[in-house]
Computed example of a mutant assay.
Amino acid sequence: MNRILRFFSVIALSLACVSGVSAKVSVSARLDSVSVLMGKLTTLNLEVVQDKGKPGGFPLFRNADINKGYVGICGDSIELRTSYKADTIDLGSNRIQINYKVPLQAFDSGSYRLPEFVYVSESDSARSNALTLNVVPVNVTADDPIAGFAQVAEPEGKSVLDALPDWMVDYWWIIIAILLAIVAFLWGMRRYKKEGTVLKKKPEPTPYETAIKDLRELKAKNLWEQGMEKEYFTRLTDILRIYLARRFGINAMEMTSREIMDHLYSSDVKDKRDYVRQILSVADFVKFAKVRPLPADNIAAYDNAVRFVEETKPVPVVAADAEEGDGQNPEIKKTETKKGGES
């Protein structure tokens, strides 16, 4: 019999402990009105029962942005003001009841199911019951009087962007892209009228660079070594004639060998005529008399072409006037580049 009594005593004590733990914190929620006009205020009442001396609160409000002054729920369609009131009632037996009165406002019409509000007190927490709120739209006409609503207020943190239309603020990047495209178009048109092109022209190679490049390519083909002396000298004289035309302005492509020599005699490079004479002479024999030159003549013609181009290219000329003074260094004047008749 004693064992049976002890068994039921242990069970009763265990149930009392469990019920005591589950009753530590409880939360209930209700609305002053379950139907509210859009834009109007109503009150959300949250009643919390807990032990005395234990701090607690709703994380929803604790984590809110103080500067905003409200917490958005239901997709931000409903706002709960953070400036709520809280009154405490002593229930005795080391228990208290805290009544939270939270202003609630909605700006979108419809039916909303409010979430369960979580209250946390130290290691204990509890959830409130869920609520349903109906937000009634405001149906007005142009003739209806406006009453019961606050006046239009200036927005906080007003800036010059508030005067712009919403589409300009939303699509500012498209506007900037269009403006940049217009600026680029105007710049391109101006450059085209001034220089005849939009993109910067790549500098053309000098007559010297072109001639040396062509001579190297001709040598790499090994034409005369393959018995193609006529093709070899035709290309060699073309390179030389183009160089004379670009470097000295001589229309060598339309001249005979004799006319080219006469023009060189009256030019500043008449002392270099022997190079050209050897090339043209051998070339005329090969092209017109069908003479096969010796390998030495082929090599000499190529070497003379290279020498003529190298020795007649424009070279920088340094003009310096040394003025001697008492303890002073000579002054070096600026360097000028001799054009040399380049066209």
Rank of each mutant, 00 (worst) to 15 (best):
R246Y: 04
S19H: 12
K24F: 15
I176W: 08
I299P: 00
V138L: 08
T234Y: 06
Q226S: 07
N134D: 11
R241N: 06
A319K: 15
A320E: 15
F233Q: 06
S111M: 02
R191A: 00
N129E: 01
Y275E: 14
N251Y: 14
L180T: 05
R30K: 08
V27S: 04
E342H: 10
K338H: 13
L44R: 01
E47Y: 06
T82A: 05
M189Q: 11
A150Q: 08
V135R: 05
P165I: 00
P314N: 08
I279Q: 04
P155D: 10
A245W: 04
Y70Q: 08
P137A: 11
G188K: 02
K193E: 11
N222F: 08
W224E: 01
A130D: 01
R277P: 00
G56C: 03
G341M: 08
R258S: 09
N99D: 15
L104Q: 02
P330Q: 12
E204A: 06
L13N: 04
F308A: 03
F8E: 09
I78C: 02
E195Y: 15
R81F: 09
K193S: 13
W224Y: 14
A16W: 14
A130L: 06
L41P: 03
A29D: 02
D143Q: 13
R30F: 07
G341C: 09
K85C: 00
L179G: 09
L5V: 12
F308K: 02
G75P: 04
G340F: 07
M168E: 12
I176H: 05
E122W: 07
S257K: 11
K158D: 03
A283F: 00
M261Q: 09
A181W: 03
Y232Q: 03
G56D: 06
E259K: 12
K333Q: 14
M168Y: 14
I96Q: 07
E324W: 10
G75S: 04
A220P: 05
K334N: 13
L41G: 01
A305R: 04
T210G: 07
D238L: 10
V36N: 05
V315N: 07
E204P: 03
A23N: 11
L244N: 02
V315K: 12
Y192G: 04
V183F: 07
E310V: 11
L264T: 06
T337D: 08
F308S: 02
W172Y: 12
D162N: 15
C74Q: 03
D162S: 13
A177Q: 06
S111P: 03
D303T: 11
V183S: 06
I239L: 05
D271L: 11
T335Q: 10
D51N: 08
S28V: 14
L264R: 03
A126P: 01
D76G: 09
D326Q: 09
L215K: 00
D87R: 15
A106L: 02
A163S: 15
F285G: 14
V183Q: 03
Q50K: 13
